[in-house]
């Protein structure tokens, strides 16, 4: 199941969204998270949904893949929906089944809130699906740059993030390898009582910790050997380029926001 999860995963591609500057994408996601709360009736939710699906279309990511990857999250959305249906006791009673009473407002709220949830997930997934983690890091670093004035360790934070990103695949491979080695020594990770399974974590975590420490140590030595001595006096190789699509897309979201305010009930 984990293999199909797409949250936080990057899918290479050539779409406009892929080519955009990570800064503009970050800004758009941030704006969208705020804008979502403007919607309060069927029409405005419709506009938001249309915007989101337009973005999905522009990303050229196969919808089937998106659906497959978000399946586990859809359960959560459904849960939110049900929660609202059962717990909201406002508006007219729509139907009654024994102790279960469903009200009009409940259905309305359920639909709207789970839709809002779903759209947020879609837009943020689009960010990670079309932007490499390192681009996100770069984008954040530049956007947060003004904070350096208040001694916020922007460079260190960005370096930490990029190194963690670099080592995620390595650690995944390592985890898989140790898990297999311990399975071969009789540990069961996929079956057996919960108590046993929790116990089985120890022979996985300890080697993983130890090798991570070793890696960190070696990496630090390698970095030092290559002349790393902190952020000062460093130049930057990666460069972000802001283009016309970036400005256009931000303006477009601005227009959508304006429309939403107009149509708001």
């Amino acid at each position: 199941m984990m293999e199909k999860m797409i949250i936080g995963r990057y899918v290479p591609g050539e779409s406009i969204l892929h080519k955009m500057d990570p800064r503009s994408k970050l800004i758009i996601v941030f704006l969208f998270v705020c804008v979502v709360f403007i919607a309060n009736n069927a029409l405005t939710y419709g506009v938001l949904a249309a915007y989101t699906f337009l973005m999905v279309g522009m990303s050229k990511i196969p919808p089937r893949f998106l659906y497959g990857g978000l399946k586990p999250v859809l359960l959560l959305v459904l849960f939110t929906f049900l929660l609202h249906i059962f717990l909201t006791k406002e508006g007219e009673l729509v139907f009654e089944l024994g102790w279960l009473k469903v009200y009009e407002e409940g259905i309305r709220q359920g639909i709207f809130i789970s839709l809002r949830f779903l759209l947020l997930i879609l837009i943020t997934s689009l960010l990670t699906l079309t932007t490499t983690p390192i681009e996100i890091t770069d984008g954040l670093e530049t956007l947060l740059n003004p904070l350096k004035k208040v001694k916020f360790p922007v460079h260190e934070l960005a370096l930490m993030m990029s190194i963690s990103l670099r080592f995620i695949p390595t650690l995944m491979q390592e985890t898989d390898k140790i898990m297999k080695a311990q399975t071969a020594r009789g540990v069961e990770y996929n079956s057996g009582p919960i108590k046993e399974r929790i116990k089985a974590i120890v022979p996985l975590l300890i080697p993983l910790f130890i090798s991570s420490f070793k890696r960190a140590e070696e990496l630090a030595v390698a970095m030092e050997a290559r002349g790393y001595k902190g952020g000062e006096g460093r130049t930057k190789y990666r460069q972000l380029t802001w283009g016309l699509p970036d400005t256009t897309m931000i303006l477009f979201l601005g227009a959508v926001t304006f429309l939403l305010i107009l149509l708001r009930g």
Partner: peptide, 23 residues
């Protein structure tokens, strides 16, 4: 496939860099 322990007891694997499995 359930309960593969019987198989694993009979077939021991020494992985590459097996020292990484010590804990």
């Amino acid at each position: 496939e359930k309960n593969l322990k019987g198989v694993r007891e009979k077939v021991g694997i020494v992985f590459q860099f097996p020292e990484h499995q010590l804990f």
